[in-house]
Design a protein around this nucleic acid. Structure first.
Length: 953
RNA sequence: GCAGGGGUGCCCGAGCUGGCCAAAGGGGGUGGACUUAAGAUCCUCUGGCGUAGGCCUACGUGGGUUCGAAUCCCAUCUCCUGCACCA
């Protein structure tokens, strides 16, 4: 049944074309959200991402803006290619995820061996889900990033950057699967997700005609090298690399070959032949003896290690192990060499001895080189020396400098002297591809880079950042940081779907690079079906986007002049983009690129005006993740709860940039609330006994009674808060006032009114009229349905105007009056409870005017200055009873700041007005006095403004 | 390590330009009304004490500023997120 209502409105929206936006004379509002990469089904986390802009779009539309909210599909990239391959070889994990998490039927799953089919399947599913969620999208502008028209646009974009000299050639390391012969992303890994790639320094130690090549994170420690380690159990090889002969472990060769392709094995060598021999420290020619060590991992880096026992716990403990191993010493005849080893300190570390490695071994209780604690001790000393270490007198020119500052210099120096090289290695191992093979670090050469490091460009992008709004504002500092930090970005790929580099066809344009300025493409996308993609040349795009004639490549616009003009005008109408919405984790790449590319290509007037970021989604407190199966599909949520409930929950449980948590009990709570709203108009009819009449115009009714004034004041206050909140994308805050607090006020009002006259009828009708408007952006189906039921106009709810706050009916005194009534009822009940009595009559004494006058004085004084308040009160001669006056003035001085003083109100009239309500609340007869004509216990002196005295009898 | 953001009552979370704050709202729980019953709905309570509307203890911990601090300052403990070539 719910579905039928939803379908009905979807059709009406579609037929009326109210979400198809064309330029007109209204003010425009252009909003986009990161288009999805449809490699899986849409879940409730995605649902939040796309509901936020829809709510904003609907809100702005009601405010009278011409809103454009388009959608497209980002299908370029490598992941689907990997998925297709895995489906093809019937990878059980992949099949399971797609069957049971993404709910793909078997007959469809079979077709998933084609990556293009995967994105086609899911983008069409996304489209349906978005329609079912009621998104007010202009679907005429829908496209996929592999459409030929779009590809032309991307070629234009990349040529723009190239022409501005912002694209250049270079090389960089990637995770790589040797079996697949392809780079792999984190999602393609079986093991080693999130593992980083570290840069190590290789140091070449001469030995005879060759070099033993050791890898290190701490090249500066070469000053403290005392000996050398090889693993006698491992296999080693001699290789030729650029004319030099290197000795490294056999296992490491198969890694290194992916970075140093010209390397060739000459022959196997036996590590035992080297043990006991010497290498030379390339820096100073010192002879370093070669010792055996089991901790040396032949799989890591080069399988060759130089030893710095003063600063490396592993080296120290290995040396100790060796000293205690008479058998090994005898085997290699190492006694004399061991006796000659002298520890060399090279870093001063405050709080530690000359040889910090020894301190750390003690501190971490490391007993041998096989000890588990060794790794931790090593990590700690590395970190500490890097952060706080100072190079000492053994390090020549570097003495007195900080380790952190020196390392880069050392690397540069060694490389210049040709005693060092570099090597990339995983921070952790193993890193295993889904195909089962071990991944390696590969260095890709001839790569194309976007020059985000360019100073001028970065500065221009800063200007772009400065002129736009960031929601939430705390994120701005992140952007400032990232714009500076961004290095050159590898923008070409070998694998995946996408657009080829126009000048170097073997490369594809990387998928983040092809989605930086596509917001401009939406503005022209609806015309593309009239145009042949080949005709979309640089001259055309230059004209439309930059209003320039001709192009660098000599092309001439082939498209009809009139059409070109129309397209250009449409672009100029919608641009610049008002709001860009995207996930929090895209701050450092996509959103920054978005600014960079706009700053580079477009004139300042077309730079984006605002950015809003999203938080993550949790499911019952756990992180949502498709790959772990911890998700609820949006389509299933809609089936179970209905789109409006899903929307309402997603928008009310957290602000967009915060993490939301889908908890079933809370979703149920929201659903019940939604039902109550759906029935509210009916409830009002039951109360008033007449038909609710909703009208396009919605005037504030004229009322006399305090309680009616009160609810009208509250309603308008809520309008104000909700409006301001929505302007800043605070959907939760907006709902807090337009749903939860609004409802609390209405409930209170219904509870409070003791009769229903015309005033109340008008007021209730007004409330319904405002309420559905405030909620319309959040729950479009429900509000359309209510509107349809209670009005006769030929206009859709979605076309109605947003309610305006009428400040003239927001009145603090009215609020204070109601607050007084509530406090009074509460106080009476409390006194009854404490005294355990059942009074028959309750006498209420209001504060005399002079007490208000004291408050006026207290307000004038401002500070809680009791003396001053008494003095002024006395001078003004407010009361004949001086003792009373000073007593009350003292009290006023102490408590005034706890009271929100809004001026004098007619307490007797207000209480009299609410007499029926108060009596039913407290269950006794109430008599209210202006003057204390009957006051046996002299309670009336307790009365303060807003706080009448009470006497129970 | 670098950068950014937090720690509030049973849970989630607002407040944080100092005083209307024992601290919104939701969820959960409690008692009551309605109902044959269940569910839904509505009302009360949900830090402690109290025979007159009050008092005490509280917003990670320890100090400080102030007539007054969840809110400002300092220190400290602790948690989360990002650190890329990938969507």
């Amino acid at each position: 049944m719910v579905t039928e209502i939803e379908k009905k409105w979807q059709k009406k929206w579609q037929d009326s074309k109210i979400f198809e936006s064309n330029p007109d004379n209204r003010e425009k509002m252009y909003i986009t959200v990161a288009f999805p990469y449809p490699s899986g089904a849409m879940h409730i986390g995605h649902g939040r991402t796309y509901t936020v802009p829809d709510v904003y779009a609907r809100f702005k539309r009601m405010q009278g803006f011409n809103v454009l909210f388009p959608m497209a599909w980002h299908v370029t990239g490598a992941p689907v290619v990997g998925i297709a391959k895995r489906i093809e070889r019937q990878d059980p994990w992949t099949l399971d995820i797609y069957k049971n998490v993404h709910r793909v039927p078997d007959d469809e799953l079979q077709k998933f061996t084609d990556p293009e089919y995967i994105v086609k399947y899911f983008s069409s599913e996304y489209h349906d889900d978005m329609t079912n969620m009621g998104y007010s999208i202009d679907w005429r502008r829908e496209f996929r990033t592999i459409d030929p028209h779009y590809k032309q646009f991307i070629r234009w974009q990349i040529r723009q950057l190239k022409d501005k000299d912002l694209i250049h050639k270079g090389s960089h390391p990637v995770k790589y699967c040797p079996d697949d012969d392809n780079p792999v992303g984190d999602h393609d890994l079986l093991e080693g997700e999130g593992v980083g790639i570290n840069e190590l320094t290789l140091i070449k130690f001469p030995i005879a005609d060759s070099f033993l090549v050791a890898a290190t994170f701490r090249p500066e420690t070469l000053y403290g090298a005392t000996n050398f380690w090889l693993n006698p159990e491992a296999e080693y090889v001699k290789v030729d690399y650029e004319g030099e002969k290197w000795i490294i472990s056999k296992k490491s060769f198969s890694n290194i070959i992916h970075q140093k392709e010209s390397m060739k094995i000459i022959e196997d060598v036996n590590p035992n032949d080297f043990i006991g021999d010497y290498v030379l420290n390339p820096m100073n020619g010192t002879k370093l003896p070669i010792f055996p060590a089991s901790f040396v991992d032949p799989d890591y880096a080069t399988g060759v290690v130089f030893s710095v026992p003063a600063h490396a716990p592993a080296d120290y403990i290995a040396l100790e192990d060796l000293k205690n191993n008479a058998e090994l010493i005898a085997k290699y005849d190492l006694q004399e060499q061991i006796d000659n080893i002298q520890l060399i300190s090279l870093v001063n570390l405050k709080g530690y001895s000359e040889y910090p490695a020894i301190d750390f071994i003690k501190q971490y209780n490391v007993t041998s080189q096989e000890d588990k604690n060794l790794k931790e001790a090593t990590n700690e000393i590395y970190k500490l020396e890097h952060a706080k270490g100072i190079m000492n007198e053994n390090t020549g020119d570097f003495e007195g400098k900080r380790v952190a500052d020196v390392r880069g210099e050392v690397i540069e120096k060694f490389i210049n002297e040709n005693i060092a090289d570099k090597l990339y290695e995983f921070a952790e191992k193993p890193v295993k591809c889904r195909c089962g093979a071990m991944c390696v670090v590969k260095e890709l050469h001839d790569q194309w880079f976007v020059k985000y490091s360019d100073k001028d460009w970065t500065n221009r992008t800063y200007e772009c950042l400065e002129q736009l709004e960031v929601v939430p504002k705390e994120i701005r500092s992140n952007f400032e940081y990232y714009l500076d930090w961004l290095e050159d970005w590898a923008c070409s790929r070998r694998l995946g779907l996408g657009t080829h580099m126009p000048w170097d066809e073997k490369w594809l344009i990387e998928p983040l690079t092809d989605s930086t300025i596509y917001m401009s493409y939406y503005t022209i996308a609806k015309y593309m079906n009239q145009i042949n993609p080949e005709d979309l040349n640089d001259a055309f795009f230059n004209k439309v986007f930059l209003n320039q004639e001709g192009a660098n490549d000599g092309s001439v616009n082939q498209i009809d002049e009139g059409l070109t003009k129309q397209i250009q005008e449409e672009f100029q109408y919608w641009y610049p983009l008002n709001w860009r919405l995207s996930a929090k984790d895209l701050v450092g790449n996509h959103l920054s690129f978005h600014m960079f590319h706009h700053a580079a290509i477009f004139p300042q007037k077309y730079w984006p005006k605002g950015i809003t970021v999203f938080g993550m989604g949790l499911l019952e407190g756990q992180k949502m993740s498709s790959s772990k199966g911890n998700v609820i599909l949006l389509s299933e949520a809609i089936d179970k709860y209905g789109a409006d409930t899903v929307r309402l929950f997603l928008m009310s449980s957290a602000e967009p940039w915060q993490d939301f948590d889908w908890r079933e009990t809370e979703v149920n709570g929201i659903q019940r609330r939604l039902e109550a709203i759906g029935q509210f108009a009916q409830k009002v009819e039951d109360i008033t006994g007449q038909k609710v009449e909703l009208t396009v115009e919605n005037e504030v009714p004229n009322v006399e009674k305090s309680i009616n004034k009160w609810i009208i004041s509250q309603v308008n206050k809520n309008i104000g808060v909700a409006t301001e909140a929505l302007e800043g994308f605070q959907t939760r805050k907006a709902l807090q006032s337009s749903l939860f607090l609004f409802r609390k006020d209405v409930d209170h009002y219904l509870n409070r009114i003791t009769q229903v006259s015309d005033e109340e009828k008008d007021t209730l009708n007004y409330i319904v009229n405002v309420w559905i408007r405030l909620l319309a952006p959040f729950i479009p189906y429900t509000t359309e349905e209510i509107w349809d039921q209670y009005n006769n106009d030929e206009i859709l709810m979605s076309e109605l105007s947003w309610p305006q706050m009428d400040e003239s009916v927001v009145d603090e005194k009215i609020e204070k009056a109601e607050e007084m009534i509530q406090d009074l009822a509460k106080d009476i009940k409390e006194v009854i409870k404490i005294t355990k009595t059942t009074p028959e009559t309750i006498h209420i004494y209001t504060a005399p005017k002079w007490k208000y006058d004291v408050y006026e004085i207290a307000q004038e004084v401002g500070k809680p200055n009791v003396g001053e308040i008494i003095k002024k009160s006395m001078q003004a001669n407010l009361c004949d009873n001086k003792k009373e006056l000073s007593k009350f003035a003292t009290k006023a001085g102490k408590t005034f700041n706890k009271i929100n003083y809004v001026g004098q109100i007619d307490e007797v009239a207000i209480i009299t007005d609410a007499l029926g309500y108060l009596e039913s609340e407290v269950g006794a007869k109430i008599v209210v006095y202006d003057e204390p004509t009957y006051d046996p216990q002299n309670k009336s002196s307790n009365a303060s403004p807003y706080k009448p005295a009470i006497y129970l009898e």
